[in-house]
């Protein structure tokens, strides 16, 4: 089974998130890393390929600036190759535009299954995987916590607000994987060394036969008008427990009418 995994490369957690005041899009300075949200689908893809006894994992990623560091991390985990669409045109791309580029990449591959995260850590629209599925006319199962292959289809567990549902799905399909549902392997030293020589194909928007206009580049179809610091709650009282802090909590609960005053 061949699995394609959509991996987003994002500024590392140490880089404070910031917006460019003119373009009002996210500033991406410094190295990009593999979004932790996507490490779970990489892990799941590797396991599915192992279980199915053949095939491999291809990573696909969209960035404006040629960054590959995040891809190397996932290659070190065991993915076979990566395809990167990098084009300055893609700076400030919206979620639908991202899905269009990813769908065009999937069309060039021979993948039975496309995995993605349920939502990225920086933009977290949570819409890219299913937008991509619709563009490909594929079925999709989102918010998945468990996947198994059974013959020519998948058996999945999809989270719901009140529990989960078991969903079967024919292939090819898109599955978005909830963070935290599998234990992610650490790349081995051998894996890290091997990743250095694994193929990373770099394409432009034009190579995919896409028109920049149709992608909805920065501000073309939606724009950020303003950014403001959210109103903070007025700061409260901070006390250090010296054995009786529980009494202060009880007093507050009484004053807010959560528990009654009488004993």
């Amino acid at each position: 089974m061949n699995v394609a995994v959509c991996v987003k490369q994002i500024p590392s957690a140490e880089t404070p998130l910031a917006f460019d005041p003119t373009s009002k899009t996210l500033v991406r300075t410094g190295p990009l890393v593999l979004d932790e949200s996507d490490s779970f689908s990489v892990e799941m893809a590797l396991r599915l390929v192992e279980q199915s006894g053949g095939g491999d994992v291809t990573l696909i990623s969209v960035v404006p600036d040629g960054e590959t560091q995040g891809l190397r991390t996932a290659l070190a985990m065991g993915a076979a190759r990566a395809v990167l669409v990098s084009d300055p045109l893609l700076s400030g791309l919206d979620a639908l535009g991202t899905a269009k580029v990813l769908a065009a990449m999937v069309r060039r591959l021979d993948a039975d299954l496309v995995l993605a995260g349920t939502e990225s850590s920086d933009g977290y629209t949570g819409t890219v995987p299913v937008q991509m599925a619709e563009l490909l006319n594929y079925p999709a199962v989102s918010f998945v916590r468990h996947v198994e292959i059974s013959g020519d289809h998948l058996v999945t567990e999809r989270q719901t607000e009140e529990g989960f549902e078991e969903v079967t799905c024919p292939l090819p399909a898109v599955v978005s994987v909830t963070a935290g549902v599998v234990e992610v392997r650490y790349p081995s030293f051998k894996g890290i060394m091997a990743a250095k020589s694994k193929p990373v194909e770099v394409l432009t928007v034009a190579d995919l036969g896409l028109e920049a206009d149709s992608l909805g580049i920065a501000g073309a179809r939606q724009e950020v008008i303003a950014l403001e610091q959210a109103e903070l709650r007025p700061s409260g009282e901070i006390i250090t427990d010296s054995g009786d802090a529980f009494e202060t909590i009880v007093e507050r609960l009484v004053s807010w009418n959560i528990i009654s005053e009488h004993q």
């Binding site: 919206d94 979620a95 639908l96 535009g97 899905a99 977290y124 629209t125 949570g126 819409t127 890219v128 995987p129 299913v130 937008q131 991509m132 599925a133 619709e134 563009l135 999709a140 989102s142 918010f143 999809r158 989270q159 719901t160 607000e161 909805g216 179809r221 939606q222």
Partner: peptide, 23 residues
């Protein structure tokens, strides 16, 4: 912004070629 709501918004967005504003 429920699980099913997001699925509908995402599919509709791609179908009618209109972006989404989320959160």
């Amino acid at each position: 912004a429920t699980y099913d709501g997001r699925d509908v918004a995402a599919r509709l967005s791609a179908k009618i070629d209109v972006p989404v504003l989320t959160n």
